[in-house]
Design a protein around this nucleic acid. Structure first.
Lengths: 195, 195
DNA sequence: CGCCCACTAGATAGAACGATCTAGTGCCGA
DNA sequence: TCGGCACTAGATCGTTCTATCTAGTGGGCG
């Protein structure tokens, strides 16, 4: 067990720490301790240091979270219901983890937006991949491409914003309300109503 | 000029740094330098250290931002138009500051949500005051109290989420799209349509 | 005038930060 | 069997962090 892929353990632990405490709040020392690794290992696998580790973690977390979203949203009877399920599922995870686990890249995105171009670009790429991925689900449900992109942006902004309020208040109220309205907006688009 | 209220200068500078770089990203040294103050001054006015300074800055910024929102939203011909104006105004400010100035407390809120109870409570109080304040504008426009609160939550989550995407992408697209849909939701409530 | 206290000034402590370095371990193929 | 290389181990460097400390300065009030 101690030998099992050190690089993988570092990535997993860092992803968890970033999600909970952000980039500046996650020290290399804590990463090394939690991953049962050493400084040598970190700089062997990530010669670019903390920044390179950060970029790889963001990419990885971004892809995993998109896959989760696609599974839940695409797995429901219709996309509007799927969107609703995703918000409620996120609320449940947040509550069960003591309001620790929300979006895996949001905190980092805000922290580095104006201080680290490489990391900022990584977070921008992740959000764009989410917009494209969720938008594809909407077009597959019969919504026009341009409108599907707009809807995807609205749904993603809603959940990101709801995470902020819910984590601060330690309440799932924001996620529940935002989920209701996001689902309604998607339903209206399915019904062909213009915004 | 150097004598003019040192405490005020510290608060102003810290508010600006928090907004742009977050709590962990804003060092006391940088605060002291930018405010043309000294460590002694900071610990004289804020004996509780960085945490106390943070709490006061959050309260202050939260109140100022609410007043700005109330002015813009309440100053339009109707609240739906006001909401739209606020999103577009925020987009303009963001663009003009090189994607630096978004929400004054959002970054800090995410950073401290799981690490500092006093600061977390301060951010929660600010968000709650926003919900109450914006909700009051909606009830004044003829919307029922319960629905007004839900609408306020949705509008605030929308703008917070849009700030995340817009700062990361260095584009105002998210703010514009979220603003359009947020205004539409408020308009629907004014028209008496259920979500 | 002269004292007092709010405030300034900046050196310094002590811990944590990211990063680098030299040794050393152990597996794998020739 | 042995050489090489991927990887581990952890001491250490210089910096930065928050916080504290002593020594002052200066303006208003008795």
């Amino acid at each position: 067990m101690a030998k099992a892929d050190t690089k993988e353990r570092i990535l997993e632990v860092t992803a968890e720490l970033f999600q909970r405490y952000g980039y500046n709040g996650s020290g290399l020392k804590q990463i090394v301790t939690n991953a049962n690794a050493t400084f040598g290992s970190v700089y062997h696998f990530f010669p670019g240091g903390k920044q390179q580790l950060g970029v790889e973690v963001l990419r990885r977390s971004g892809q995993m979270y998109l896959e989760l979203a696609e599974t839940i949203v695409g797995g429901a009877s219709d996309v509007a219901t799927g969107v609703r399920h995703f918000f409620l599922g996120a609320a449940e995870v947040l509550r069960q983890t003591g309001y620790l686990d929300a979006c895996p890249i949001e905190t980092v995105a805000l922290e580095v937006a104006s201080t680290n171009e490489a990391l900022r670009q990584a977070t921008a790429d992740v959000f764009e991949s989410w917009i494209t991925g969720i938008g594809a689900l909407f077009t597959a449900a019969g919504i026009g491409e341009e409108k599907a992109r707009d809807l995807a942006i609205v749904v993603i902004t809603a959940i990101e914003g709801a995470f902020v309020l819910s984590r601060a208040a330690r309440t799932t109220e924001a996620l529940e309300r935002a989920g209701t309205y996001a689902a309604a907006i998607v339903q209206a688009a399915l019904d062909g109503i213009e915004p």
